[in-house]
């Protein structure tokens, strides 16, 4: 099927700003699903609130646009209730890790077969550029006018420590890698987290003098490197891209099937 078969064309052009990285994630996600050839009716996309969360409305799946931060909680209900569905949860960084941080770590801990995509633009886009738990020390935001003194999370480390069994990172510049990683994440049987570094030229870019979308993508190219590369040894500041965790642990819904079996046998 063509890209257009996966979108709700009547809502295009979409609402995102020119050069918004969330559009690149949309693009990569469609190509991942297309390559996997998954039936559109077998996918439920659950999103929260934010610019990123609007992605759900543009895709021709079963789409559930929920509350700020709560997408994974809704998704857990969908998935446990009907495990045969593919559940994909795109989230903003604030959505996933500020207000939704608790749901994020618990979904990871349960290892429920959901694909979480953190569209990390290091800012609150929808509400106009406030700092997020991923903005980072020393950045500027509308609520950090004298520079941000909050330290940031490392999504990969957080997800890994919380128990996610597939953890990866890519960027809007590295679209081929991003698409391949999303594909693998969807196929992975367990909780998978994909952090995609996404640019918000409108707020993060402008405030932090990172230039336009093109400049921001160039910057992502510059500051990232494949996992375990030579470059990383020489420059520890570089952010690694690739698959960090890929492991097998009992998946929650299958584990619950065991509960059902035990309950029925009376044990």
């Amino acid at each position: 099927m063509a890209v257009k078969d996966y979108i709700r064309e009547r809502f295009f052009p979409h609402m995102w700003c020119a050069g918004c990285g969330h559009g690149i994630v949309l693009n990569g996600l469609i190509r991942a699903v297309e390559k996997l050839g998954i039936d559109k009716s077998a996918i439920v996309m659950v999103s929260g609130i934010g610019c990123s969360s609007r992605i759900a409305g543009y895709l021709d799946f079963h789409t559930l646009h929920t509350l700020h931060g709560r997408a994974l909680a809704f998704a857990t209900g969908v998935k446990l209730s009907k495990p045969e569905l593919n559940v994909i949860v795109p989230m903003g960084d604030g959505d996933a890790l500020a207000i939704g941080g608790n749901h994020f770590i618990h979904a990871a801990r349960r290892n429920i077969n959901i694909t979480a995509i953190v569209m990390n633009n290091r800012i609150y886009g929808m509400t106009g550029g406030q700092c997020s738990p991923l903005s980072g020390y020393g950045t500027l935001a509308s609520t950090a006018p004298y520079t941000n003194v909050d330290q940031s999370f490392d999504v990969v480390q957080l997800a890994s420590a919380a128990g996610a069994t597939f953890v990866a990172r890519s960027t809007g510049f590295h679209v081929q890698q991003m698409t391949e990683i999303i594909q693998e994440a969807i196929l992975h049987n367990g909780f998978s987290v994909v952090e995609v570094m996404s640019q918000c030229p409108t707020y993060f870019g402008r405030r932090n003098r990172q230039g336009d979308a093109v400049d921001m993508l160039k910057y992502m190219q510059k500051i990232t490197t494949p996992i375990g590369s030579k470059a990383k040894e020489q420059n520890p500041e570089l952010i690694e891209r690739g698959v960090f965790v890929r492991k097998e642990l009992p998946e929650y819904c299958s584990a619950y099937d065991t509960v059902i079996r035990r309950a029925k046998e009376g044990k």
């Binding site: 559930l64 509350l67 909680a73 809704f74 209900g77 998935k79 209730s81």
Partner: peptide, 10 residues
Amino acid sequence: CAIIGASLTG
């Protein structure tokens, strides 16, 4: 939130 999600699956 979880019960709302589950309700939507029927």
